[in-house]
Design a protein around this nucleic acid. Structure first.
Lengths: 223, 223
DNA sequence: TGTACATCAGTGAACGCGCGTTCACTGATGTAC
DNA sequence: TGTACATCAGTGAACGCGCGTTCACTGATGTAC
C-alpha cells in the first residue's frame, strides 16, 4: 500500500501547455470570482486562488499583472453581460418605457439569475472601501434609479399613485423590497425558512409587486 | 527653524501610566470599532488600530490576547446595550405586544441611533464568512422575526390584513423596507439625494409604515 | 514541405516586506506589615 | 504613618511566517524563408 507518496493531483508540467486544453486564464477568473465575492478581496490570497484553479501564483502575475488586476478583470467579466442588458433597457429609443412592475420583475430575475450579484453588492458596493462602489453607482444605480423615478412620476401624473408621494422615497421602497430579500437570504433562510428556488422567487415577485403597488397607489376613498 | 526633529505627537512613556488618564483599553475598543466595521476584519491591521488609538500592538495582546480577541470584545461591547433593549421588547410579561407600526418605528430608530449598525450588518452578517452572523441570528434576527410574524398574524386574525397574505413574506417586506435604506445610504445619498438627518429619518418612518400598511391591509372592495 | 527561431503560456523557487505575535523590560500603583 | 514588594498597565524591539511579487527557466506553438 504505497498511497503515501502519490501526487495529490495531476500537476501541469513546465513549458507551454498543449493547445486545446482549458485555459489557465479562464480557470483563474472563475475561481477568483467565487473566492473574492464570497470572502472579500483582502481575505483571499492569490495562492488560494491559484491552487484552487490548479495553477500557480506566477500565472496570475503573467495574465493580470497583480492581485488587483485579477480582481478588476474578474469584475469586468462578471458584470459585462448584465450591464449590456441594462443598457438596452434604458435605451430611450424603446417604444414603451418600462413600468414599475416590469422594473421590479426584471431586477428580481437579474438577482435570482446571477447568484454572485448579491455577494458583489454586499462586499464591494455597500461595504465601506468596496472596490466597485463608484462603478456600480455610475453604471447600475445611477441608471436604474431614474428609470424607477420616471415610472413613478408617470403613474403619479395619471393619478394612479398618491399625489403626496415623494417619488424618491417610493423608488427607495421599490428597490428595498426588490434587493433586500436577496442580500438577507443567509439570514432569512434560517429565521423565516425562505428558500431561493424558482417557485419561491416567482411567489416573491408576486408578493412584492402587490405590496408595493397597493402601498403607493391612490386611495379610492380619501379621508 | 528646527522643525525637522520635532516628535510627531506626545507619546506615552514606558511604565504604568498615571491613574486618571483615559484608558488605553477603551481607546483601543473604540478605534477598533471604527476601523473594523468600516473596512472589515482582514483589511485592518493591529498596528493601524494601535497607532490610531495612540498605543502599541503589544497593548492589544496585553488586553485582548490577540487580534480576534480585540474584535470579539469590540462586538460584545457595541452590541450589549442594543441587545438589552431588544430583550425588554420581547419580554412576554409586557402588557401589550408590539404592533407592526411600533416594530418598524423602533427598528428604524435603533438603526438611525447607532450608525455603526448598518456597517456591522453588511460586514459581519450579510457578507459570507462574517464573524457575527451566528450571534446575530441567535440574538437579533431570531428574536425579531417572531415579533414581526406575531404582529402580522394577530392583525390578520382581526381581519385588518389580507387573508391570503403569507406572514413570512409580509415580515420580510417589513424588514426590507426598514433595514435596506440604511444599508444602501452610501449609494442612495448619491443617486436619490437622500440624507440621514433626523428630519429625513422621521419622514422615512412615516413613508415606510404607510407603504407597508397600505400594501398589506385587507381590501375594502375585494374584486 | 522543412526547418530555425521568436513568441507564448506557463512553472518552481526565491525574495523582501509587513503582518500578528512575543519577549524583556519599565515605572506607577496597591497592599501587607 | 512608612516602607518593601508584588502587581498592573503598559512600552519598544525583535521574531517568524506567509503574503504578493519577481526571476530564471521550460517546452509547445506560430511564422518567415
Amino acid at each position: 500500500m504505497s498511497t503515501a507518496a502519490l501526487p495529490a493531483a495531476r500537476r501541469r508540467s513546465p513549458g507551454r501547455p498543449v493547445a486545446g486544453g482549458d485555459s489557465v486564464r479562464g480557470a483563474l477568473l472563475q475561481t477568483a470570482r467565487d473566492l473574492f465575492l464570497a470572502r472579500g478581496f483582502a481575505s483571499v490570497t492569490i495562492r488560494q486562488i491559484a491552487s484552487a484553479a490548479g495553477s500557480s501564483p506566477a500565472a496570475i502575475h503573467y495574465h493580470f499583472g497583480d492581485k488587483l488586476g485579477l480582481y478588476r478583470a474578474m469584475l469586468d467579466e462578471a458584470v459585462a453581460p448584465v450591464l449590456a442588458a441594462l443598457q438596452r433597457l434604458g435605451d430611450p429609443g424603446r417604444a414603451e418605457p418600462a413600468d414599475l412592475t416590469d422594473l421590479v420583475r426584471l431586477y428580481t430575475r437579474m438577482l435570482a439569475g446571477n447568484p454572485w450579484m448579491p455577494a458583489l453588492i454586499v462586499q464591494e458596493v455597500l461595504a465601506e472601501g468596496g472596490q466597485f462602489r463608484e462603478q456600480f453607482i455610475e453604471h447600475f444605480a445611477g441608471r436604474l434609479a431614474p428609470l424607477f423615478i420616471g415610472a413613478i412620476r408617470r403613474e403619479q401624473g395619471r393619478g394612479a399613485l398618491r399625489g403626496d408621494l415623494d417619488p424618491r422615497l417610493a423608488a427607495l421602497s421599490a428597490i428595498s423590497l426588490t434587493v433586500f430579500p436577496f442580500l438577507a437570504l443567509p439570514v432569512t433562510s434560517r429565521v423565516l425558512g425562505l428558500s431561493p428556488d424558482e417557485k419561491a422567487v416567482e411567489r416573491l415577485v408576486d408578493h412584492t409587486t402587490r405590496v408595493l403597488l397597493e402601498g403607493i397607489r391612490a386611495q379610492e376613498d380619501p379621508a
